[in-house]
Design a protein around this nucleic acid. Structure first.
Lengths: 136, 136
DNA sequence: TTTGACCCTGTAGCTACTACAGGGTCAATG
DNA sequence: CATTGACCCTGTAGTAGCTACAGGGTCAAA
């Protein structure tokens, strides 16, 4: 044990839960390093790429953008840099997320009251929802 | 008065707060009817198109997708259809919005605790945030 | 040997815009 | 009457983050 077993892209996909096409896409945009190839030109992934892809998956799941992840990976690669930049990115992202939640909550409240205003079953000509859309 | 004053696309843009390019885009995808043209081929909008564009703006602001708006406009055009379909679209959209809020709230909570876990000022090699990203 | 599952590249599609390039039009000014 | 600057036109390409082909090559098992 200890020797890395090379993974095909399909195996990587199953191991990380990321679509094959998406893995190739990440390579194309330079988010993942190009892995070594077999003689028949198949991608042969090692645990290095797998770790990186898992990093990407987790940060994507947390809603970070590709550019944010690029920055995080770069910081993570330079182990002796200050951690403050990482926290900064995370804090910015948290702020954005909170803002989105607040915006969506306003929409949800408006939709709720619009829906409540409709008695239901009447014709569109008398529909309060359509009316609200039509006249500010 | 009463006679519609034709609006140029720029005037429409100022009147509705929607980008000129976006107005042309809405026409191209069939969300807005193609307006009459002047002799010099300028779009000459009437209050009909303005109403429709305001409808689109309000529904977009409420987060409805273009396809949803297309359906709503269609229902709104057929005044004698049942209002139930409108409520249905709105209810679906509300459901989606609530789901998004819930998802984002989970993310925000996770981010918050990740950020809290970082003492700050330490080097990336010891950073809890990066560690969390790297190992599930 | 053939079958079926897998891999490759390259390109086009998706949403909802936004941003040009490269032209034409119009009203006011000198 | 020419010019200037603000406006308008079409058509195409770019944005994010994938996803979905088409049209081929590879490989292991039956």
């Amino acid at each position: 044990m200890g020797q890395d077993q090379a993974l095909t892209i399909g195996a990587m996909s199953r191991a990380t839960g990321i679509n094959i096409e998406t893995i190739r896409y990440y390579e194309r945009i330079g988010l993942l390093p190009a892995p070594p190839r077999t003689r028949s030109n198949y991608r042969a992934y090692t645990s290095i790429e797998q770790k990186r892809l898992n990093f990407v998956r987790r940060t994507r799941n947390l809603g970070f953008s590709i550019d944010e992840i690029r920055a995080l990976l770069c910081l993570s690669d330079n182990a002796n840099t200050d951690c403050r930049e990482v926290t900064e990115i995370a804090r910015n992202h948290l702020g954005e997320t909170k803002r989105k939640i607040a915006d969506l909550q306003v929409l949800a409240d408006e939709l709720q009251s619009l829906i409540a205003s409709c008695a239901g079953g009447i014709s569109v000509v008398d529909c309060r929802i359509i009316e609200a859309f039509a006249h500010a």
